[in-house]
């Protein structure tokens, strides 16, 4: 190595790109894909949106989005995670970065959604990959989930408690969940929603729009 080259400027933290990158994580079946689909449906007419999915079974999520006609094929990429979904979004984000950057290059999107494969409560995104993250849990997992904490619940930028339409059926107390979340999260916002309900995604949509405005400011 030549001396001069050792003075190469190292890349600082990821420079903020034009697109807002939002990671969507949370345990299996909580409604991550349903949320991605709802966001795409609501936003894809006004914004350029692309999606990277990390579902364990490569094409399943992508197919779901395609079937629902919310996004064109070429705006969806699947990343395989070698049985370790949390590694791909946190410890070794290189494969996701490759896909996100490729989509950004091809489509110059306003919004990039990265869906994590379903994992446990400790799996969160690295901020080297995304700008903001949503953690999705559902009431069917029991109303104790927010109290358990873990980085997804405590540190995510938005906590989504989904499937409140099922609360009664599974005996989950929404007030307990709301209070425990507030206690765990301090100022960080939490929304309780049902993606089955008409306009159920609205509170998340509001948060995404605000985040976009903040990102562009």
């Amino acid at each position: 190595m030549h001396r001069e080259e050792t003075q190469t400027v190292l890349p600082a933290a990821r420079p903020r790109g034009r697109a807002l990158r939002i990671g969507i994580g949370g345990p299996v079946g909580g409604g991550k894909t349903a949320l991605v689909a709802a966001l795409c449906r609501a936003l894809s007419t006004e914004l350029s949106v692309v999606v990277v999915t990390n579902d364990i079974y490569t094409t399943e999520d992508a197919d779901f989005l395609r079937r629902n006609g919310v996004l064109a094929d070429e705006r969806i990429r699947a990343v395989r995670t070698g049985c370790c979904p949390h590694t791909a979004i946190r410890d070794d984000i290189t494969a996701n970065l490759d896909e996100v950057e490729e989509l950004e290059r091809l489509h110059d999107p306003d919004l990039v959604l990265v869906e994590s494969g379903g994992d446990n409560l400790t799996a969160t995104f690295s901020y080297g990959l995304i700008d903001r993250q949503i953690f999705v849990v559902d009431v069917a997992g029991g109303d104790k989930v927010p109290r358990k904490g873990g980085p997804g619940v405590t540190r995510s930028d938005l906590l989504v408690i989904n499937k409140i339409d099922l609360a009664e059926l599974v005996g989950a107390d929404l007030d307990v969940m709301r209070n425990d979340s507030a206690a765990q999260r301090g100022d960080r916002p939490t929304v309780l929603i049902s993606l089955r309900a008409e306009h159920g995604v609205a509170p998340v949509l509001d948060w995404v729009r605000r985040s976009l405005t903040a990102h562009r400011a």
């Binding site: 995670t81 370790c84 070794d92 290189t94």
Partner: peptide, 11 residues
């Protein structure tokens, strides 16, 4: 293998 090298997703 903790160094981010993309290897974890390849068998």
């Amino acid at each position: 293998s903790r160094l981010p090298n993309g290897g974890h997703a390849h068998s």
